[in-house]
Amino acid sequence: MEKEFGAVLKRLREQKGMTINQLAEASGISNSQISRMENGIRGVPKPPTIRKLADALEVPYGELMSAAGFWDADGAAKGLREEAPAWATYKDKRDFKKMLEEDGELMFDGIPLDAEDKQRIKDVLTGLFWEAKQMNKRKKKEPGSPDSPSSS
């Protein structure tokens, strides 16, 4: 996936007639990091970095998110609608389901969101939820932390 994203990034940059240094300046991302992405040496960047690149290249954010493997062709978060990570416990899955099922009217600027917008928001929340859960689990396992088994 890293090489595919890098190839797309390089193609888009070259189509815009930009050098790596110009893209670095426009995006606020170092030229060495961009070079590593393009060459498949660096892993797929996180969505905030992808947003900076999309803005600097003046291309749709979804195009780069799809190239990075985060979104499918329809613009939905890939693999996140139904599947939970392998490490998720029953309690994690229950908590997530409860969070998504809380039934309130989703609105933006006082206007109710349509089904497509609601699904996109759920997809983003899904990714953020599982990322936060995983980070929390890592923190608890760090040696010397109050929650780690070795400090009990």
Rank of each mutant, 00 (worst) to 15 (best):
I50E: 00
L106I: 13
V59R: 02
S30T: 15
A7V: 03
I121E: 10
D117G: 03
Q119R: 13
P47E: 06
K46T: 12
Q15M: 09
E38Y: 02
L106E: 13
Y61H: 10
D109H: 10
L106T: 07
G69N: 03
K141P: 01
L128F: 10
V124T: 10
N31V: 01
K118N: 10
P85G: 09
S150G: 10
G17C: 09
G144A: 05
Q33T: 12
G104T: 11
R94V: 15
K3H: 08
E101F: 12
N39I: 00
T19G: 07
K97E: 15
P47Q: 05
A76M: 14
A115V: 11
R120M: 07
A24W: 02
K122E: 13
M65K: 03
Q22T: 09
D72Q: 06
N39Y: 00
L106K: 09
A68P: 01
S152F: 11
M65L: 15
N39K: 09
R81N: 11
M18E: 04
K91H: 11
I50M: 03
D147G: 09
V124P: 00
E102I: 11
G69A: 06
L9H: 01
M65Q: 07
S30W: 05
M1N: 07
S150P: 01
L64W: 00
E131T: 14
K52A: 12
E142D: 10
W87A: 13
I50H: 01
Y61D: 08
S150W: 10
L100N: 11
E58T: 05
L64F: 01
N136Q: 13
P85I: 09
F129W: 15
P47Y: 04
D92V: 06
R94C: 09
M1R: 07
M18Q: 11
L128E: 14
N136W: 10
S152M: 11
R42F: 04
A77H: 04
K139Q: 12
P146Q: 08
D109N: 13
P143A: 13
Q134L: 11
E4Q: 13
R138K: 14
D74A: 15
S145Y: 14
M1Q: 10
L128Q: 14
M135F: 13
